[in-house]
């Protein structure tokens, strides 16, 4: 009896040692960043792992990518100082900087000052491309991307409200939030929703990858341009990692030339940014009621 118990405990000890090797120990002094999971969520590690290695080399400290499940999670971990740097959308960036005084936007993609959303429709709707806002979407089923997305929710909602003077729930017969842009495309392409709005860069990327069937889904409208994605860093990192650290990170991002890394975002290159550039996003978020005034 006693031996039986003992051998059980031994077995557990072995299990314990096995399991121990399975978990990763957190290293002190690591610099961590996250990114909004805006597309292709099964391959986030592949997308953002590479830039972690690049930054580690440039900054001379361990840089780690922390995956999050949704946009809210990225803002939350930035607020909680679980990450010090983040690749945000326009809206999530504004939210994060409001929540963490002193944080700054330091870089954006070359495309981000003039970003766009595409309204896409299943061909069964009979809607086709036009330059002016597609009034014919009224009464259809409609999906946004994430509730916290700029190009998948905030800006499309603004244009919908401006065109109809109604909330999306009054305009459409059904309103959904797919969670990310790839999913929006998949849902409209499959006919689960008739119309959707998504990030134009993701649309182009999916077209290039051959995942868009023009016989099933088409772009019906392009929104006017607005500022979007940005790299935002906490203001207190200079204290932790040494004076001038923010500048160093900014420079490392702007110097980034590696196509493979840039394609993951996907951006041509990164250019400098500052907080004031995203004022239009903040104003829109207040107008739509996502950020309170």
């Amino acid at each position: 009896m006693c031996f039986a118990v003992l051998s059980n405990y031994m077995r557990l000890l072995v299990l314990f040692l096995l399991f121990n090797s399975m978990l990763v120990l957190p290293v002190l002094g690591e610099f961590k960043f996250t990114a909004i999971p805006d597309q292709d969520t099964a391959r986030l590690q592949q997308r953002f792992g590479k830039i972690a290695d690049y930054l580690s080399g440039k900054l001379g400290i361990e840089v780690k990518y922390i995956p999050v499940k949704d946009y809210a999670g990225s803002v939350q971990s930035f607020k909680n100082n679980e990450v010090q740097l983040a690749w945000f959308g326009g809206l999530s960036g504004v939210k994060a900087r409001l929540a963490v005084p002193g944080s700054v936007a330091i870089a954006q993609g070359a495309e981000d000052p003039y970003f766009m959303s595409y309204f896409i429709a299943n061909v069964s709707t009979g809607l086709s491309f036009a330059e002016e806002f597609p009034k014919g979407i009224k009464g259809r089923t409609f999906t946004f991307g994430s509730k916290g997305s700029t190009s998948g929710r905030l800006m499309p909602e603004l244009f919908i409200r401006q065109s109809f003077s109604q909330t999306p729930r009054d305009v459409f017969s059904r309103v959904g939030f797919s969670g990310d842009h790839s999913k929006t495309l998949a849902l409209v392409q499959s006919g689960s929703y008739e119309v959707g709005a998504m990030n134009f860069k993701v649309w182009k990327k999916e077209v290039d990858a051959g995942r868009v069937d023009p016989a099933k889904v088409q772009v019906i409208w392009r929104t006017p341009a607005y500022p979007d994605y940005n790299w935002t860093i906490r203001g207190d990192v200079d204290e932790t990692y040494g004076e001038g650290f923010i500048k160093k990170v900014q420079q490392a991002l702007i110097d980034l030339q590696d196509r493979a890394i840039l394609d993951a975002f996907p951006r041509a290159r990164f250019i400098p940014a500052d907080n004031s550039m995203f004022k239009p996003v903040l104003d829109t978020a207040i107008e739509v009621g996502i950020i309170r005034n």
Binding site: D70, Y71, A72, V75, Q76, K79, K95, A99, S146, K147, G148, G176, F177, I290, I291, R292
Partner: peptide
Amino acid sequence: LGIYTLGFYIHSAISDDQ
């Protein structure tokens, strides 16, 4: 998951950081 029961509004508030 997208029907308008209480969870929808709670999740939205969390998403909006409210």
